[in-house]
Design a binder for these strands. Structure first.
Length: 431
DNA sequence: TCTGGGGTCCTAGGACCC
DNA sequence: TCTGGGGTCCTAGGACCC
């Protein structure tokens, strides 16, 4: 048995937590760079604001209907997410954090009757302790638990919890469009529909070999999970990342090699932090730059270049140096660059790295320096210490966030202030 | 007409997720 | 005027091995 917990309109709910006056009002949260809508309140959905709608498309609606708009505040959401995960760990023997607002819960060996009660209890705990509304779906497989969660969410007046036993779910599955199944995206949905397969139930009735042939083994697994046969394992310990990186779309195009070099150094530093956190070192760094592909009227150019390290490294200094080298290979003067990225791949465990005899770098010195740098930055904030090649103001300077909320739980200077007479009563106990 | 049988590794491209 | 930033897995095909 497996449960899936998913916070309702997660980013919007995070913003409302610190602005309760927004409950009942249309609210949206935008992607990085204030590009398009990535989270909507039910009221915003009712106004017809699409997921992924570009900001300029909804501008009139926002003004007319008084939609409250936020830039995304990822540090805040990440912090609240971690708190939710800690709460549910008290109730489920094992959890798998699937995304910032979702977690699978291992309910192996439990009975349906107990699960109904447990799920309601977990939902109540998250609402009480984090102030965030969530829904929980429970079934025998992950794909069915996902579907159960979706059914719980659609039932606005319901209890927020839905059990979906595979033996009796045919009618429910027949009401679910095939494209709403977890793992069936736009392409597969269109393909299935063109073959007359329109609902999740119809998908369960197709011969397995046909599914295997057209949707690969991935599709077959989804089909079996819909039939109640678990195929997707529970992963309570997160796997080490295989690739990671950092990239941004800039608010204003960068034109000089120096500007791009600084941005890439920032990305390299951020990516380095990430792999040091998981104790990995990178064998390959790929830097890429590109112009604005939405501007059909402008000349387009984009290229990437990969640098291999003879000794895998996670030193920000060596990564930044490599990104600079890569940029020299790909930079072309005269183009406005809208996006750039640094990707790290060929990640290996740091302890398995054997410095080669002849590469002339004191890797142990770099390791100690990074340790010190991470400690300082961990305490005083990212970029408190940085390499000289990075942007003075960090990547934030290069992106646009016009409606950013405060770091209520993530920055001391921005902690929520409450003005109330009750405080004196509450605190008087301590005096 | 007809040309073995068994592997591995790598990459690009395509699908998917939040 | 204006559209993010992360990730994963699978397959086919080519190059190579004995």
């Amino acid at each position: 048995m497996v449960g899936l917990l998913d916070i309702n309109s997660f980013y919007v709910s995070c913003e409302r937590l610190f602005a309760p006056g927004l409950n009942g009002r249309p609210v949206v949260v935008l992607s990085n760079n204030d590009g398009f809508v990535i989270s909507r309140s039910n009221e915003a959905k009712a106004l017809g604001i699409r997921m992924g709608a570009a900001v300029f498309e909804i501008r009139d609606l926002v003004r007319k209907e008084g939609v409250k708009v936020f830039s995304s505040n990822y540090p805040l959401y990440g912090d609240l997410s971690a708190r939710v995960m800690n709460t549910i760990r008290r109730y489920a023997p094992a959890t798998e954090v699937y995304s910032i607002d979702e977690a699978f819960m291992d309910f192996s060996g439990m009975q349906w009757f107990d699960l109904q009660k447990l799920a309601l209890k977990i939902r109540k705990a998250v609402l009480r302790e984090q102030g965030l509304p969530c829904c929980i779906g429970v079934s025998e497989t992950k794909v069915l638990a996902k579907l159960a969660n979706r059914l719980a969410k659609k039932d606005l007046q319901g209890p927020g919890v839905r059990l979906l036993p595979s033996a009796t779910c045919a009618l429910d599955l027949d009401r679910v469009p095939v494209g709403d199944i977890w793992g069936i995206g736009g392409r597969y949905a269109a393909f299935l529909e063109s073959h007359g397969i329109k609902t999740a139930y119809e998908f369960t009735q197709v011969p397995g070999p046909w599914v295997r042939k057209h949707l690969t083994v991935v599709g077959l697994r989804i089909q079996m999970e819909l039939q109640g046969i678990p195929c997707i394992p529970f992963e309570s310990v997160p796997e080490q990342k295989q690739t990671t990186g950092s990239s941004r779309t800039f608010k204003i195009c960068l034109t000089t090699q120096t500007e791009l070099s600084e941005a890439l150094a920032d990305f390299a530093a951020r990516a380095g932090e990430k792999i040091r956190k998981q104790n990995s070192a990178a064998s390959i760094l790929t830097a890429s730059i590109e112009t604005d592909h939405f501007r059909k009227d402008q000349p387009q150019y984009g290229r990437s270049f990969s640098v291999s390290f003879t000794t895998p490294t996670n030193s920000t200094i060596l990564l930044a140096k490599a990104s600079r080298y890569a940029l020299e290979r790909i930079f072309r003067d005269g183009y406005p660059y809208k996006r750039a990225s640094v990707m790290l791949s060929g990640l290996v465990p740091q302890e398995s790295v054997l410095p080669t005899l002849f590469d002339g770098t004191d890797h142990d010195k770099h390791r100690r320096l990074m340790l010190a740098m991470d400690a300082v930055n961990g305490r005083f904030g990212r970029n408190a210490v940085r390499t000289a090649g990075q942007t003075a103001g960090g990547v934030a300077k290069l992106t646009h966030q016009g409606a950013l909320s405060a770091g209520f739980t993530t920055r001391w200077g921005e902690v929520l202030q409450v003005k109330t007479h009750c405080c004196s009563v509450i605190f008087s106990r301590h005096y």
